[in-house]
């Protein structure tokens, strides 16, 4: 993109970021969202959009307008991050990164699917593996490793408890623990409200 065009986009579209979403995008260095012309190339090449209600163009448009309902859309979790939208965008917007940022903003507010929260807290935070093999009910995976001549647990965090502590310290420092606690609280409150509602019925 020529320098002039870059300047033009900056002048024209970087103004007025009062709403929550776009200001967070600007903070994250993703202000390029404002050069979106809503052409739909992202949606056209999207394999998730072929089979779900997820429309990349709609999500980006809502984010751009500061329409916070996008954070409640389960649709933004249907993106498999294949990066076709990122590659093909004619305005060079890192679209996939936008969707990931949008998910971050949703999670900050405790808007996270139950499965994802369990994965984040009970699996990833607890074991520091996304797919662990050291849990009591995972003996078959350790046996499988041994059947191929490998030690039952790999030389990862699974074999070094101090490495798990290191990761916990880092996740404390970045605020990840707090984020998970907040999400758990939001979930608990939602559940409570739902129960109350069904009791009243």
């Amino acid at each position: 993109m020529s320098e002039n065009v870059e300047k033009y986009i900056k002048r024209k579209v970087f103004r007025g970021t009062s709403d929550k979403i776009s200001s967070k995008f600007v903070d994250a260095g993703l202000e390029k969202i404002r050069s979106c012309i809503n052409c739909g190339t992202c949606t056209g090449g999207c394999p998730a959009g072929r089979r779900t209600a997820y429309r990349t163009r709609v999500a980006i448009r809502k984010a751009l307008r500061g329409d916070e309902s996008v954070l409640d859309d389960v649709d933004i979790w249907m993106c498999s991050t294949c990066y076709y939208c990122y590659e093909r965008c004619p305005r060079n917007i890192p679209v996939t990164d936008m969707i990931i940022k949008l998910r971050n903003i949703a999670v900050e507010e405790g808007k996270i699917l139950d499965n994802h929260l369990v994965l984040a807290d009970k699996v990833f935070y607890t074991t520091c593996h996304g797919v662990p093999a050291n849990q009591p009910d995972q003996e078959k995976w350790r046996d499988l490793r041994e059947s191929y001549g490998l030690p039952p647990l790999p030389p990862t965090v699974h074999s070094y408890p101090e490495a798990v502590e290191e990761c916990h310290k880092l996740m404390e420092l970045t605020g990840f623990r707090k984020l998970l606690d907040h999400a758990n609280e939001v979930k608990a409150k939602q559940k409570e409200a739902q129960e109350k509602q069904s009791e009243e019925k």
Binding site: A120, H129, V131, V164
Partner: peptide, 13 residues
């Protein structure tokens, strides 16, 4: 540790 997974854990934080 886990890398951490780019579409999952990056999407959280």
């Amino acid at each position: 540790a886990c890398c951490p997974a780019p579409g999952v854990f990056r999407a959280f934080h």
